[in-house]
Nucleic acid binder design. Structure first.
Lengths: 344, 344
DNA sequence: CTGAAAGCGCTTACAG
DNA sequence: CTGAAAGCGCTTACAG
């Protein structure tokens, strides 16, 4: 163990590798042309010293701030905290720090908070969480300020910026097929809030899967919800108090699915024995209630990583024509099979 | 508006105030003796220039790191994210950054993560969230490393370090009295997980309030739970399937309270009409389900602020004899009245 | 492809 | 009570 009692510096690495600090710096930032031989020497030296660059020194000396901003609108959204935790971790691994701001209030205030984040903290890039990422004025401001940004699961205007998301349509399609595979043919669906693009996609995925399987969907098996537990309660009652009941209900999110379970219980329709229920999102609620919900896990950690990656790899600062990839970064979801579905 | 296009530095302030950088630095850190007159001059200059010290420069030059560590064990605990968000904000206001680490795994690994946080990131202080804050080996390590730390809601060993908490006993006492005020006399109680100090305190608060009101608590009105939804389900069934039923149930946390609501529904005992239910913690679940739960709000934001304050104000680095205050910092809770209690 | 010099914005010792 | 000097660990020009 070459244990260094005190943290090693770029100078130590330079000495050990027999080069100048400058060369070490170049290798570390792998931006300049360094001969493969010296590059290797430096890397070996850095590794053996367990060298980690001092972020503060870097920040002070360079034009980059090594800060990434994260803007969200509503902290109570389930994914905010999970996203935050993952983003924090990714940033740290890359020698960046995350600066987090809540963006609430009037349109004016939102713009001001965004502007402050850029001008005062001088962030190198910004991540915008939904629904904030759909605010076009904010996007325009960021463009004007020339700061790269990545949106997470935007609803529309997909052509204006890079974004990360999951395939809501495919997930709903797969989930529906899962129910069909388990022998269900009468499947009810509770639609999400009408203003959100994700609602439409999930609904469409459900419909297409049913059609592919040649299964009919009577109008009474579709209810409009708002994503809230309460709206799920209402929708479930409407659907379950009729004579012809579905054997399974697919709710567009977990809160509504939990409401379905609750209504089913009060109607003496135990889940999953008498009624199968599935949700979407895999919020903590899905594994709080009993039975645990079969649902779709949003790949939030991976989305956070990807977003940080895009912002720290520097590819977004290139002129659009030179960028590697297209704007859309779709991350794989996961179907979480748990205890709320019965095999018929 | 003395709008400075470019950020002002300590040098600018010094110039404007007609003193040296050194003097400005002293005023900013208010540690040395500076004459009131020059202090004022400097402060005025700094204010008019809208001066904010550059953290990175500070960090690089000084022995302090301006980092605070936050260690937690289980990210899914409801309060972790809320605490995190609040701590992030407080740190930023004070020119600090928060470094967050999950501390899971074997005892060995936990110790290693803690050690790395201190030795590599060189944090100026550490915040320990429950239940991690009850790990005595970690506390010993921190002592050995001579890093100040603050524990949040520790269960025991209250004499070894400063900590922030709320008064669980009083909160349970108040909540019970609230039910009594609403005319309830048959009140059931679901105890929390037996290993946690908070469970005992809440239970005791309930018992004492009942006794003060001269109200009897039949053994069948007390059920042991584990804080999980599932354990609440079981407890509620036991309590509600008897002939003699309580008119209100006080569950030691929101998850179990939600379970009570669920069981009540399935037994055709609508909440609050036929049964009142109250919880504890005010997790998101409390306002997800219907009816929204009357519960106790933990003052998480204030706890985070207080913890950061203790760590950044420097009072913890003084020898124990010179410290201002005692170890215990109790923050006020709030009784959130919502829709799950009926006035009899 | 590589290096010597200067400087980022602060603070730490050392003087006075 | 106040200041001139040196230095924290990097990167940005500028040379070669």
């Amino acid at each position: 163990m070459a244990s260094a009692k005190t943290k090693s510096t770029i100078q130590d690495v330079a000495q050990l590798a027999g080069v100048s600090k400058m060369t070490v710096s170049r290798v570390l930032n792998n931006d300049a042309k360094v001969s493969d031989k010296t590059r290797e020497k430096v890397q070996k030296a850095a590794a053996s010293l367990n060298y980690l660059p001092n972020i503060s020194a870097r920040r002070l000396a360079s034009s980059k701030s090594y800060f990434i901003g994260l803007l969200y609108e509503n902290p109570s959204e389930g994914y905010v905290s999970q996203f935050l935790l993952s983003a924090l971790k990714s940033c740290r691994q890359r020698g960046y720090h995350l600066v987090v701001d809540e963006c609430q209030g009037s349109e004016q205030e939102k713009l001001q908070i965004t502007r402050d984040l850029v001008e005062q903290t001088r962030v190198d890039g910004v991540i915008l969480l939904p629904p904030f990422c759909n605010n076009l004025q904010v996007l325009a401001l960021l463009d004007e300020l020339k700061v790269p940004y990545v949106r997470v699961s935007p609803d529309a205007n997909l052509e204006v910026s890079p974004f990360v998301c999951m395939d809501d349509y495919q997930a709903a399609f797969d989930m529906t097929n899962h129910l069909i595979d388990q022998g269900h043919q009468q499947i009810g669906f509770i639609v999400g809030h009408q203003n959100l693009g994700a609602s439409r996609l999930r609904y469409q995925g459900f419909l297409d899967a049913m059609r592919s399987a040649q299964l009919a969907v009577p109008p009474s098996f579709i209810e409009q919800g708002q994503f809230s537990f309460k709206s799920g309660l209402q929708a479930a009652e409407n659907m379950l108090k009729q004579d012809l009941r579905p054997t399974a209900i697919f709710a567009s999110n977990d809160d509504m699915a939990a409401a379905v379970v609750s209504v089913a219980n009060s109607l003496s329709l135990p889940v999953p024995e008498k009624l199968s229920v599935v949700g979407f999102d895999d919020t903590p609620l899905a594994t709080t209630i009993w039975p645990h919900l079969t649902t779709i896990r949003q790949p939030i950690t991976e989305m956070a990583e990807q977003a940080i990656d895009l912002l720290t790899s520097g590819q977004l600062t290139l002129p659009p024509s030179q960028r590697l990839s297209d704007l859309r970064h779709v991350i794989e979801f996961q179907l979480m099979q748990r205890d709320s579905v019965k095999h018929l």
